[in-house]
Design a protein around this nucleic acid. Structure first.
Lengths: 163, 163
DNA sequence: CATTACTCTGACGTTAACGTTAAACTTTCT
DNA sequence: AGAAAGTTTAACGTTAACGTCAGAGTAATG
């Protein structure tokens, strides 16, 4: 049997086909478990774009990108899954507002306007609040980082002195 | 009954006396629960400096400072309690090493030396590792913070435009 | 088409970090 | 001294974020 190109190290056939990415492949790519993906779906955080006729989840690259954002919110910002959901839903609702705003500049009803303005304020408030909290945390973390680096340096100096 | 100075707003008598701070007072000061303090003690994270004859915990200001550090490691760095314990014990062991090193510069046995050097390396490694991880996280958080601030600003701009 | 290899949906198990409650005991206040 | 307020240990309860397993069904593969 001749060694063909495809046998080299092609991604699982399930992935090469445009049939979407299987759950375990998606999970390994993102460094999480399949259970985690099902759990996130249960919480309304991440819904696969496709389902096979048999009922299996198939993820797209966009889904994976979305997942990456979720994981960043969790790992980097330390949000819990509820906070993440709130943040994401507000974000998508906001995108809708922006879209409708640009779509029909000016000719919306005053009532719709009020709703849009309320949402924009909500979004602005949340973003500013988060930004502020982050700034706080950042300064404290930087202080800590400086201290850690200094301590390490001092250890190395004492070590050098001992030689 | 004349209003004396002490009745103004003096801290609980239990605190003014130098008998140490009671657990619930210590807890409220730090913004945690009494249960948390007992739990931290159980884990070896925070031992009160004093116990009354009857067996009640009495905390000092130093204890509270120590508690603050623990809470910062938890909240700012997102460490779990096990990581915090490791970090703190390494730190105190390191202080001991530094003390003995300064106490008898040079005239320690070669065996003791080896031990000290090993610990200094361990400490330097841990500090550097943590510092590096922190730097990583910091850059990602800064990126996020910038994005949040930008989003908020854009929301405000659209809002202004709608007036 | 017959195996492998995956996946599905429950459902129960697990861990960290406490919360809560009970029964007995201390401290503080009057 | 005696009530009122606070504390102790021990033990069971709770929540988030999954892990794990069973039994049945679906997809990929030689």
């Amino acid at each position: 049997m001749p060694v063909t190109d495809e046998t080299k190290k092609a991604a699982p056939a399930s992935e090469t086909a445009d049939a979407g990415i299987r759950i375990s492949d998606a999970a390994t790519r993102a460094g999480v478990s399949a259970r985690t993906l099902r759990y996130y779906e249960e919480l309304g955080l991440l819904t696969p774009s496709l389902y096979t006729a048999g009922g299996e989840r198939r993820y797209t690259l966009d889904d994976l990108a979305h997942l990456e954002r979720i994981l960043e919110l969790r790992e980097v910002l330390g949000m819990n899954l509820d906070e993440i959901r709130e943040f994401l839903t507000l974000e998508t609702r906001l995108d809708e507002v922006k879209a409708t705003y640009r779509a029909n500049k000016g000719d919306t009803t005053t009532k719709a306007r009020a709703v849009q303005k309320a949402m924009l304020r909500e979004a602005a408030d949340l973003n500013e609040s988060l930004a502020k909290q982050l700034t706080d945390k950042l300064t404290r973390m930087e202080a800590f980082q400086t201290k850690l680096a200094g301590d390490a340096k001092r250890c190395r100096e004492i070590l050098a002195e001992m030689e």
